[in-house]
Simulated assay, not measured.
Amino acid sequence: MSSQVSTVVCCFVCGATSNLQRCSKCRGIYYCSKDHQKKDWKRHKQSCKETEATNCNASSFEQKFGRSYNNQLDPATFTSEGSSESEILSAAGELLGGTLSPVLNNNIEEVVSKGKKKALEVVQSSVPISLNMVQPKTKNSKYFPAVTLIAPIDHHIKDEKIESMCQNIIEDLSTYGVCVLDKFLGDEEGSQILAEVLNIKEKGALRDGQLVSTKGKGKEELKTIRSDQICWVHGKEKECEHIGYLIGRVDALITRANRMVNNGKLGQYNITGRTKAMVACYPGSGTHYVKHVDNPNRDGRCITAIYYLNMDWNVERSGGLLRIFPEGFPIVANIEPFFDRLIFFWSDRRNPHEVQPAKDTRYAITLWYFDAAEREQALRRYQKERLAVAKSNST
């Protein structure tokens, strides 16, 4: 039997239903007179200010991220499915070696299972954010020697611009939970990265993405949830020099912003590692990813970074819109996957999101950054579970 709940608008103090006036600041509570509003002000004051701030942020959110729709978010309405823990752990290990081997890449779980020692190493590892990945490029030489994080990352980009991007990341993540940076590397470098991604695809290195839980789901059913094809790369492979350069640039921004003074909500995390880069392709024909959370189970990922590689993309014609449903806002962020666009958002339950059906082939590269403390706790849980399973299988 279903039950219906009716809502009656009335004075908060006396319950009267006539001659009502709404609080002009928060717009969320009613009174029948000024006297009753004053009487309730001591109790209502704090929540009124918080609601007013949220409404103000929602307005600026809408201006910043364009078109918006009502965000009637009910936890039961989205599928809490991100990349599986085994996929993230495998991607953090050194399983691919120095080249893109389609055979090895498509059989990661088989490789892990071949040796308990190797599997344990994978469990314990994440890719450290290395200064060796932060290397500026010139036209005359591929790379300069490694530089410190406070130096300019690229000789064409002034330190003031890096500082500005870091400030944008800090302010937008703290205020909205989402940050968008356009024209991040420029057309020339972005085109080189796209060429490497197309080469990965041509080599047959892409495989179907995994989910947190696959129990009871067939292959076709899984594709109704997530139908992208992916490949994990380190950035040091000979076929991925430009992807490696992108990784270094994003590493530098995140690491620098995380260590800046007055770093907002970023200051709650100690970011020292990340996953490998996930190269993703939605091959058109309605491929998509339903509403989900990247890190629903506290696996250590705190920031999702996505770089888009889609030239002349038109959402009305090609679909593939990223829609984020940020916690605490009555609206959503609609983000077009434009070429050379870099975005950041919190990876946990604050940001359920979806990739709407793509009619044309859509490319992106994703990195997940780990909070050291949460990641350590997650790995202990995972290691304990794996050892318990191994012990159970041996008896």
Rank of each mutant, 00 (worst) to 15 (best):
K25T: 10
K34G: 10
C10Y: 05
C32W: 08
R22L: 08
S18Q: 12
S33A: 07
S33L: 02
K34L: 11
G28E: 12
T7Q: 13
C14W: 03
R22T: 14
C23H: 09
A16Y: 00
G28M: 06
C23K: 07
T7I: 15
L20E: 04
S33M: 02
S24C: 02
S18M: 01
Q4D: 10
Y31C: 02
C14S: 09
S33R: 07
G15S: 03
R27Q: 15
C11G: 11
Q4E: 13
G28H: 02
C32H: 08
F12P: 01
S6L: 14
T17L: 01
S6Q: 11
N19E: 13
Q4M: 13
K34D: 09
K25M: 10
F12Y: 14
N19Y: 03
S33W: 06
A16G: 13
G28K: 08
T17Q: 14
V5Q: 15
V5H: 14
V5Y: 09
Q21S: 15
S33F: 00
G15P: 09
L20W: 06
K34Q: 12
V8R: 12
T17N: 08
S24N: 03
R22I: 15
S33V: 06
Q21F: 14
Y31S: 04
T7M: 12
C32Q: 09
T17I: 06
Y30I: 00
C11H: 02
C32I: 05
V9K: 13
A16V: 07
S33P: 03
N19T: 08
Q21K: 15
V13P: 04
C32A: 03
A16E: 12
L20A: 01
S6M: 10
I29M: 06
I29S: 10
R22W: 03
C11S: 01
L20C: 09
C26H: 04
K25N: 13
Y31N: 05
C10P: 04
C11Q: 03
G15R: 02
K34H: 09
V8S: 06
C23L: 04
Q4P: 00
F12Q: 15
K34V: 15
C14V: 03
K25F: 08
Y31E: 00
R27M: 00
I29K: 10
G28V: 05
R22S: 09
C10L: 09
R22V: 12
C26P: 09
C11E: 01
V13M: 11
K34A: 05
R27A: 08
Y30Q: 11
C10D: 08
I29N: 10
A16S: 15
C26V: 01
Y31M: 08
V13W: 04
T7P: 00
C23V: 04
V9C: 06
C14K: 03
V13C: 10
C14G: 08
T7F: 15
V8H: 07
C26G: 05
C23F: 00
Y31H: 06
G15M: 06
V5F: 12
I29V: 15
C23I: 05
S24A: 02
F12W: 09
S6N: 08
K34W: 01
C10Q: 15
C14M: 00
S24D: 01
A16F: 10
K25V: 05
V9Y: 14
V5L: 13
V9E: 12
C14N: 05
V5I: 14
S6C: 07
K25A: 07
C14H: 03
Q21I: 09
K34S: 11
Q21A: 14
K25R: 15
A16P: 04
Q4W: 03
Y30T: 05
C14P: 07
Q21T: 14
S33E: 05
